[in-house]
Design a protein around this nucleic acid. Structure first.
Length: 169
DNA sequence: AACGGTTGCAACCGCTTGCAA
DNA sequence: ATTGCAAGCGGTTGCAACCGT
């Protein structure tokens, strides 16, 4: 049987959003506020599923988004938070006003991982590794795109939220 | 100028969680 | 206790832009 789809895929658009769709979504939310994403597309006259609308609003259209380049301070804060929280992007985003979880996740994967490796630090464990180990690891990752070492358990290593709060403040 | 490879980001997919019935 | 819905989250993918040859 299975769970019903979040939307009628035969009648929804996918892919990049158009300016008109953006405008419809923004004006609808400005008039009615966020909430009930499932019924929003129909009410706003959009041929999108609710999930897609929510993502578009949160990651791109929200008026309080900062956008633009990350500062050095933000870089360091993300690294620090990731050390405590692991891949809990929404929690990390919560500490960075104007940044979204998706934005931070992308930035981590494209910039910060490389930055840490260049410093000789394993981006997953935040522990230093030797230059030789780093080199062999990088070459192995090129050969074997699947993980070659056990993934560290985030829940096992992440401290309670209260600990993070006190540590970072 | 043309082509192929790489990079970065927006968006999607599928799973999990919280809650109401 | 169970079921189903809605929302949230993290991983992954697709593709346009960029870069080197």
């Amino acid at each position: 049987m299975g769970r019903s789809s979040c939307c009628d895929k035969a009648h929804t658009n996918k892919g990049a959003w158009t300016k008109e769709e953006d405008q419809r979504l923004v004006s609808y939310i400005q008039a009615h506020g966020e909430g009930c994403w499932r019924s929003l597309p129909k009410a706003a006259g959009l041929l999108r599923c609710g999930k897609s609308c929510r993502l578009r609003w949160i990651n791109y259209l929200r008026p309080d988004l900062k956008r633009g380049n990350f500062t050095e301070e933000e870089d360091e804060l993300i690294i620090k938070l990731h050390g405590f929280l692991g891949n809990k992007w929404s929690l990390i985003a919560g500490r960075l006003p104007g940044r979204t979880d998706n934005e931070i996740k992308n930035y981590w994967n494209t910039h910060i991982k490389r930055k840490l490796r260049s410093r000789g630090i394993d981006p997953q464990t935040h522990h230093p590794f030797t230059a030789a180990a780093a080199a062999s690891l990088n070459s192995l990752e090129i050969c074997f795109p699947v993980p070659i070492r056990p993934t560290t358990s985030v829940t096992a290593t992440a401290p309670p939220a209260a600990v993070v709060e006190t540590t970072l403040t």
